[in-house]
């Protein structure tokens, strides 16, 4: 992916751009909002990663200008402002995701990949599907039914939502924070092991009785669904 990074911090900027390059992305790193806006107008990017507070134009203003000129490139805000209001501001300016500092690199990487895939349009076709299928596991979204190898599996509402979220992102890293935000609508860490417990329950139902496990844990990073 070709990524534009706007981050003025001398330590974080190189860390993020270095990490993303290591993952095979092409990164243009800017420290000034105006430079970033000029670059984004001049060429096509797959993703914008914008810090909210930078010299020149701030990230919010950059994205507003781009959206005003009908640029729909997905954008991820990085910010030190963890407040919900600031988050909403980012979304209303046309941001697609929001990551609060400090963050783990895997968190950023997972979100970057999620936004990149969205750009492909692959997710749109999936969203329209009424049944999700992966290997021998199927999830009927209309009938709210789950089957593996033809055997029906009883899922609680949250487990169903959790599995749906995973099945829409096969092979991709999903972090705990992403699950809390997307499945539970919690923008805070409930400190209790909500995610771990529900993943474990889900596993007991969809993986334990069968030979092949589909849901795997990546220690300290998150979860991956798929072979």
């Amino acid at each position: 992916m070709r990524i534009l990074l706007l981050e003025d911090d001398k330590q974080l900027g190189p860390w993020v751009s270095g990490g993303l390059r290591e993952e095979g992305h092409v990164v243009d790193h800017f420290e000034d909002g105006k430079d970033a806006l000029m670059a984004a107008m001049g060429q096509e990017y797959d993703l914008l990663i914008l810090d909210r507070m930078v010299p020149g134009l701030d990230g919010l203003a950059v994205l507003k200008s781009l959206r005003a000129s009908k640029d729909t490139t997905p954008a991820l805000f990085l910010t030190a402002q963890g407040e919900v209001a600031a988050r909403d501001e980012g979304f209303s300016a046309g941001g697609d995701d929001y990551l609060t500092k400090p963050f783990a690199f895997v968190e950023l990487s997972a979100r970057v990949n999620a936004l990149g895939r969205r750009r492909d349009g692959s997710e749109n076709s999936e969203a329209a599907a009424t049944t999700l299928q992966y290997a021998d596991l199927s999830l009927d979204l209309l009938a709210r039914r789950c089957e593996r190898q033809g055997q029906p599996i009883e899922l609680m509402a949250k487990e169903f939502k959790l599995l749906e979220y995973f099945m829409r992102r096969p092979g991709r890293l999903v972090t705990r924070t992403m699950l809390l935000e997307q499945v539970w609508d919690m923008s805070f860490d409930p400190t209790t092991s909500v995610v771990e417990t529900h993943i474990s329950r889900l596993r007991t139902k969809i993986d334990k009785p069968f030979e092949e496990a589909l849901l795997s844990t990546r220690r300290g990073e998150g979860y991956v669904f798929g072979r």
């Binding site: 974080l12 500092k101 400090p102």
Partner: peptide
């Protein structure tokens, strides 16, 4: 405080 914390984390 968040920015230095982010640096520390990185």
């Amino acid at each position: 405080l968040r920015t230095p914390l982010a640096r520390l984390r990185s």
